[in-house]
């Protein structure tokens, strides 16, 4: 709530001419916007392009932002539409689970970490990789729900869908994620989850 208030204060500052305040907003929201963009683009260069485009569009339309909803929800809806436009332009094909390039390589985390931490890190790497194997819409909904601190209603608003549709899509996305995890982990599935 406090951050929401601060977001609004920053927006008002930008609207009265203190445009440098927009940098604070960018820095605050860039990790999530970039993560969401990564769910669509699958590579860093394209994701940066989408995220930059999103922030520029948000700046242009800042005057139209109705300060009733969360700024983050509004920003994520812009990210979603920017990413969809980008995908349409690039005509990206989603990666198949059987592609050779999808074979996961867990990086050697070094010897300074304890065994539990390494195991946990491996689980996160597997999970991240499983998310990248999902369809962009599924990955975006999961990311918005778990990392974007957005309620089903807010996600529905951001994606221009009904809350009930989002709930069903979220459930199906989680089932697909579970399937991808099973495929990646095979016998280790019970150890890691």
């Amino acid at each position: 709530m406090h951050q929401n208030e601060t977001d609004l204060a920053l927006i008002n500052a930008v609207l009265v001419g203190q445009t440098s305040q927009y940098e604070v907003l960018v820095k605050r929201h860039q990790p999530f916007v970039f993560t969401l963009a990564m769910r669509f683009a699958k590579n860093r260069e394209d994701a940066e392009e989408i995220a930059q485009d999103c922030f520029v569009k948000a700046y242009r339309a800042l005057g139209t932002f109705k300060q009733k909803a969360k700024f983050s929800t509004w920003l994520y809806s812009i990210t979603y539409t920017s990413a969809m436009t980008f995908l349409r332009k690039k005509k990206l094909t989603t990666q198949s689970i059987n592609d050779d390039e999808n074979v996961l390589q867990i990086a050697n985390s070094g010897t300074n970490f304890d065994a539990n931490l390494i195991e946990k890190k491996s689980a996160y790497v597997y999970l991240n990789h499983a998310i990248t194997l999902l369809l962009p819409d599924d990955a975006a909904i999961i990311t918005l729900f778990y990392k974007g601190e957005q309620s089903l209603e807010e996600i529905a608003q951001a994606l221009n869908m009904e809350a009930k549709t989002v709930k069903v899509k979220l459930f199906r996305a989680r089932l697909r994620l579970k399937d991808k995890l099973k495929y990646l982990l095979k016998d280790e599935v019970n150890e890691l989850i």
Partner: peptide, 28 residues
């Protein structure tokens, strides 16, 4: 684990690039 997943971080020049583009725009 999904909640604890770390965010992807953009490049170091990301904010600067955005602000460079933003400064070319009309003030909102």
């Amino acid at each position: 684990q999904l909640i604890e997943l770390e965010f992807e971080e953009p490049s170091m020049s990301f904010t600067r690039n955005v602000m460079d583009k933003v400064n070319l725009e009309l003030k909102p």
